[in-house]
Design a protein around this nucleic acid. Structure first.
Lengths: 347, 347
DNA sequence: GCCTAGCCTGAAAACGTTTTACTTTCGGGA
DNA sequence: TCCCGAAAGTAAAACGTTTTCAGGCTAGGC
């Protein structure tokens, strides 16, 4: 009797562990062990099982495995904004070590919306994710505290951090990086140096601003501190650049930007106002995104070891999950990359 | 008697459907139905179940559900390269409709390596993914054929396509877009127009080249066709730009680039060679990435409706999965965005 | 009053693993 | 020969759902 093909249902009859057991002439338990704990099984059966697996073309059903083992083998990486090219290399680093360890990484784009983050945190208690890598601090603190608290789920931060919650972290020294940039500008003879910060509430921006102020003060320039706020994007760089360079004011001769995109926006603003860079204005960016080599002029910027940040962060998270001893706070080094957007102060 | 805390295991005792059933005073079957097929359950029990769920704080275990339903509620989006900002908006579009339909999207970065793609295709028969959205044609054809063949898995292509496999597609008309760009350049008086193509094997590049050649020929300029090949990235644009603009040759007065990144590379090459843009050289890009408004000069380019492409592609895929009637090939319209990198041919 | 149809519900099987608890086998020492 | 223990294997339970199958109940038509 012919059966009509049931529409909507595919007929992928994947072989199961039972089929393997039948062919290998052993029990499913043995097959399972041969895969997960090869040393618990005799050499001969291990071979027979391997042969049987090849013969029937078996691949484990991960849903079943996840259910039984109460894990998902996936890590979620929470980003503030996937369109920011800054993150792609970090993700690559994360994926390298995750894949090697048999984990998937699910990219969660929050689009700067804390509510979105909430949905991703929900994956933790429901066993859809085994841990979270936070690449943003734009997350309701209550969620973080809850995940990190009593019934703790593994959580690590990369690049960013919370001032009031002590999560495991891998990041750069933002304070020092800012000091470095400002020192460099001062060494070029600049006195009126402005900062185009990211969101003022952002802890890493605060650190950078602290470095900026400190370095100015150390050179007796604290009265010159001039800080405006952007959102890391091109547009805000352009707009704040226009405001900052408005001729009516005492114009800064250098601007330290908290992202390359904003720096590039400033470059455009300067062009529009007819200011020569680096002749009349020096600009320093942050992150060393691919684009910074191709803008005009090529951007002086601070480079973060992005791939390494990703790798270390994932390693830290996996270590945490396995209760290994880990160093909870890792600081990676930055580098000031001098290109063509900075020069001696005029006059 | 106190129990020592078992290290390595967390104690998230999530309530199960059984707990809900107990509290609601019904069977697990009823709870399950109340959630999945509310209409199959009386109003009063539905309410009792809802109350019970709230009381115990129940959330379904998706691993169990996936196992039983033999689905994963995740779609993988296969990218050639996550660091290309062109894709981020497409991904946003995809996620919008996927989330709405209760699906996750797993981003698979192939890094231009077909072997990587293979690992992601493996997720299909093992029920770890329900479908694949292909944003690249750099995938072993055998995989695609296999997935699309007998034991068919849902597959749709976005932006790209295969010449020899007829997959459902949503994309732009690359031929027409190229014609548009070249027509525009010719209308500006350009006669020696070069094309900086993406990888020559790429079908969409072939289409664009065909449009380029056709339009030249239509104006009796076919002898002037000049094509070089890049990889869509900044660097290749810069390098091929230098080669193309080498003064020893009969220099083109306009270059049509198959990506904005390459166009921006060309801009840098032109600057380095002292060529004024658009005075001595016009440059047209493709994709309208965020950066194209902030380079110098601002880039004339072809804009694709990226968010919409993502949305339509996901909608098409979901439609396929539900055996709905769908239109298998969707063509979205492009727009030539004229900015400052193009001008009348000199002389 | 009886039968039927239709709604609602519950018991239990099923999904494909892993793991526990138990059995068999085997080698070797007394 | 017997016994012991380790090694290797098995049967079955468990994971948390969904779904099938079989009732039970109610209402309504005769």
């Amino acid at each position: 009797m012919l059966r009509a093909k049931v529409s909507g249902k595919r007929n992928h009859l994947m072989p199961t562990i039972k089929d393997v057991a039948r062919v290998a002439g052993c029990s499913t338990a043995t097959v399972s062990r041969a895969l997960a704990n090869p040393e618990k099984v005799s050499d001969t059966t291990r071979e027979r099982v391997a042969l049987a697996i090849a013969e029937v073309g078996y691949a484990p059903n991960v849903a079943a495995r996840n259910l039984r083992r109460a894990e998902s083998k996936t890590i979620v990486a929470l980003l503030p904004d996937i369109s920011n090219p800054f993150f792609s290399e970090i993700i690559n680093g994360m994926e390298e070590v995750a894949h090697q360890a048999g984990y998937q990484v699910l990219i969660g784009d929050c689009e700067h919306d804390p509510a979105r983050a909430e949905a991703y945190f929900e994956l933790l208690p429901t066993n859809q994710a085994d841990g979270i890598l936070l690449l943003t601090a734009e997350v309701p603190a209550v969620l973080v505290r809850q995940a990190d608290g009593q019934s703790s789920f593994p959580l690590v931060m990369a690049c960013e951090f919370f001032t009031d919650i002590d999560l495991p972290t891998v990041a750069i020294d933002n304070h020092q990086a800012a000091c470095h940039a400002i020192d460099y500008l001062i060494s070029l003879g600049h006195r009126r140096i402005a900062t185009l910060s990211g969101p003022a509430a952002n802890p890493i921006c605060k650190e950078r601003v602290r470095g900026y102020r400190g370095t100015l003060a150390a050179h007796g320039l604290s009265a010159e501190a001039h800080i405006v706020e952007g959102d890391f994007g091109f547009r805000s760089g352009y707009q704040q650049g226009l405001a900052l360079l408005d001729p009516a004011q005492a114009r800064p001769t250098a601007i330290f930007c908290h992202s390359d995109e904003m720096a590039i926006g400033v470059l455009k603003a300067a062009r529009q106002l007819g200011l020569a860079v680096p002749g009349q204005l020096s600009v320093v960016g942050f992150d060393n995104i691919g684009f910074s080599e191709y803008c005009e002029p090529e951007l002086t910027t601070i480079s973060q070891p992005r791939n390494e940040i990703g790798q270390q962060a994932m390693q830290l998270l996996l270590g945490l999950m396995r209760d290994k001893p880990v160093v909870r706070h890792q600081t990676l080094s930055t580098q000031l990359i001098v290109r063509k957007s900075t020069g001696r102060a005029e006059g």
